[in-house]
């Protein structure tokens, strides 16, 4: 399927702007269509579920009911992992029983049948249609880029709600990155939590969560982290500088790991300029990495060629010496034969 009802989420035009811009860039090129749900409202995220279970069901259901009415037949896509989980939790509740569905209708005071499915943008992008369309548009393979694919928690947990990929070792984003030529690294923090809103409420306790994610990505040789959620992205990208200041003060090496949305990297592989996909407004500088890695790759190629030439020269030199020795040996043998005949 290539057409969805879109739930933009509250960060779409603000802190998650680059996600929106890069999604639009890629979608337009591959014929992937997103129609915004008219008059959608905030999903409530963990603030709602920590306030009241009823609220956590009701807030997402209103947007889903509007989508059902205004965009019938379309499944709903949410780019943000937090929105995705909230919407899908509400949907799962409504689908559990007729009684639940009736309760949701009463809460939102609207007709609603819980018809449309909810998927994350990442899930929509790993469908066969979208993947083959992406493959057709790649003009600049990101061959030299080692990426740590970071899914975060809300994309996969709780598994019975999210129903997406492996809960401990998801592969979808890794496969997307392979499709555009990048090299995903094996690492242990794919689904580790970024701290979400706790980075604001309890920064002291929550900051180490981010530091460990960077640490593990670096330890496994990643050039960058690829994200699929605007809050994960903000927590990593915006707070990297602060974490680096603390590391320097402790005498540790600072990180130099840019973070990207998977859609930004797909955009780059289509030949986009960094600014066209929102990479120019990252907090940690992210525009140079690909260029630097491409230069590294060219230099490595040159070095490789030089090494090959050197090897050929050495082989030829040895072969020449062998030939020389053989000739000398043959000559001596001929001489001693002559001697013997005499």
């Amino acid at each position: 399927m290539m057409k969805y009802a879109n739930f933009p989420g509250c960060s779409a035009e603000t802190t998650g702007k680059s996600f929106t811009v890069s999604t639009k860039y890629v979608s337009e090129r591959i014929g992937f269509e997103l129609v915004d749900i008219p008059d959608w409202n905030c999903c409530g995220t963990s603030a709602a579920s920590l306030t009241s279970p009823e609220l956590a069901i009701a807030l997402p259901a209103r947007s889903l009911a509007i989508a059902e009415r205004e965009l019938p037949g379309l499944d709903v896509v949410a780019a943000c992992a937090g929105c995705f989980r909230s919407l899908k939790t509400s949907l799962a509740f409504a689908r559990e029983s007729d009684e639940n569905l009736e309760h949701v209708r009463e809460l939102i005071d609207m007709p609603y049948n819980a018809e449309a499915n909810v998927v994350s943008l990442l899930e929509a992008f790993v469908s066969d249609d979208v993947r083959s369309s992406i493959a057709e548009h790649v003009t600049r393979e990101l061959r030299c880029l080692k990426v740590a694919c970071y899914y975060g928690c809300a994309m996969v947990r709780p598994a019975e709600v999210c129903d997406f990929d492996d809960v401990e070792d998801p592969r979808s984003m890794d496969e997307l990155m392979e499709l555009i030529g990048a090299e995903p690294v094996d690492w242990a923090f794919k689904t580790e939590c970024c701290g979400a809103a706790q980075q604001m409420a309890i920064p002291k306790q929550a900051r180490p969560m981010i530091e460990r994610i960077f640490e593990n990505a670096a330890a496994n040789g990643a050039d960058c982290i690829v994200t699929s959620c605007p809050l994960c992205m903000l927590n990593l990208d915006m707070r990297e500088a602060e974490i680096n200041r603390a590391r320097i003060a402790e005498g540790k090496k600072p990180f130099d790991i840019p973070c990207y949305y998977f859609t930004e990297l797909i955009g780059l592989s289509f030949g986009a300029e960094p600014a066209e996909v929102g990479i120019d407004i990252h907090f940690h500088p992210a525009e140079m990495l690909l260029l630097r890695r491409e230069l590294d790759a060219l230099e490595a190629q040159e070095a490789d060629l030089a090494a090959q030439a050197e090897e050929r020269r050495k082989k030829a030199e040895i072969a020449a010496r062998i030939a020389q020795k053989k000739a000398e040996k043959a000559k001596k043998a001929a001489e001693s034969e002559k001697e013997a005949k005499r």
Binding site: C10, T14, N41, G44, A197
Partner: peptide
């Protein structure tokens, strides 16, 4: 942990006032 409580209350108040969350 008052901070966690204040954050969630402010979040819901924001959504109640505007329908969406205005992060700033």
């Amino acid at each position: 942990v008052p901070e966690a409580d204040i954050f969630d209350d402010e979040f819901i108040a924001n959504v109640r006032a505007h329908g969406v969350s205005n992060e700033q």
